[in-house]
């Protein structure tokens, strides 16, 4: 395993965090109404209603096939709903709103370039290509020492941190993460969680998909529990974990098999 250093700022600048939060607030509330998504003759998202505020980290949780990743893609505009509406701060999703968000995929998609070039590609797109910003991002995810390595030669955890750094390079107001730690070792998981926590502290709204209960407990401010393409429960984290109101969430938290 490679040696690396993870450089986290000791404290996030309160002024810049509140500024970022205020900017992100214009995209909220996120209102999803009667959302339906059908594919191959199957209804995968079924009249889903959801309202999210700009504050904190929202965890999308649920068993496999509940529609978590699908919902994330619909929110980001990668796929279009069959019916229903999504509105960000009262506005219909468009290219501008999509550019204010960043999505990290479950399996990191990295360009066939070096670590540095992967970051520079996104920085250039956003017209902010400068070495200092790149170094800051790489330091933030602990990849400074691997800056000139080919991205595809990195370990799984390093690749996911690079994908996260690239997402952060867009200065997103909303960070969407689709099970970014699903196939990583515990050390990598903790590192990514730390970066996510620090990003949320900077005022970025985080929507994080996971079916790992422990991870949800560590990160969540509120939890949206999905079951069969609908919201079974949406509650603040403390209430959800101490006293879930839906039977499917209770079964899930108790480790019982949900059909």
């Amino acid at each position: 395993m490679r040696e690396f250093t993870l450089q986290m700022p000791h404290s996030v600048n309160a002024g810049s965090a509140s500024k970022a939060a205020a900017k992100a607030a214009s995209l909220f509330p996120l209102a999803v109404n009667a959302l339906i998504f059908e594919a191959g003759g199957r209804r995968l998202i079924d009249r889903l209603d959801l309202t999210l505020s700009a504050a904190g980290t929202t965890i999308l949780m649920g068993p496999n096939g509940a529609g978590k990743s699908l919902l994330l893609r619909l929110l980001h505009g990668l796929i279009l709903p069959s019916d229903g509406t999504i509105s960000w701060g009262g506005k219909q999703p468009d290219r501008d709103i999509q550019r204010r968000q960043a999505l990290v995929f479950q399996k990191p998609v990295l360009l066939r370039r070096s670590v540095t070039d992967n970051i520079d590609f996104v920085l250039r797109l956003h017209g902010q290509a400068d070495a200092e910003r790149r170094q800051e991002l790489l330091a933030r995810v602990g990849l400074l020492e691997l800056a000139h390595q080919p991205a595809r030669r990195l370990s799984g955890g390093e690749q996911q941190r690079l994908a996260l750094a690239r997402a952060l390079a867009t200065r997103p107001e909303v960070l969407l993460l689709d099970e970014p730690t699903s196939s990583l070792d515990p050390a990598s998981v903790l590192m990514i969680e730390q970066i996510v926590r620090e990003t949320a502290a900077r005022g970025v709204k985080v929507i994080f998909v996971t079916h790992d209960i422990g991870q949800a407990r560590r990160l969540a401010d509120d939890v949206v529990f999905l079951h069969r393409g609908s919201v079974a429960e949406h509650a603040p984290a403390a209430a959800f974990f101490s006293n879930p109101s839906s039977s499917v969430a209770r079964d899930f938290l108790a480790g019982r098999i949900i059909l």
């Binding site: 980001h76 505009g77 990668l78 999509q98 999505l103 995929f105 998609v109 797109l125």
Partner: peptide, 16 residues
């Protein structure tokens, strides 16, 4: 097919 969703997410134009 590998990059498609990433490019969509980043909002790349066809030429980019």
């Amino acid at each position: 097919s590998e990059y498609d969703e990433l490019f969509q997410s980043l909002g790349l134009s066809v030429w980019q």
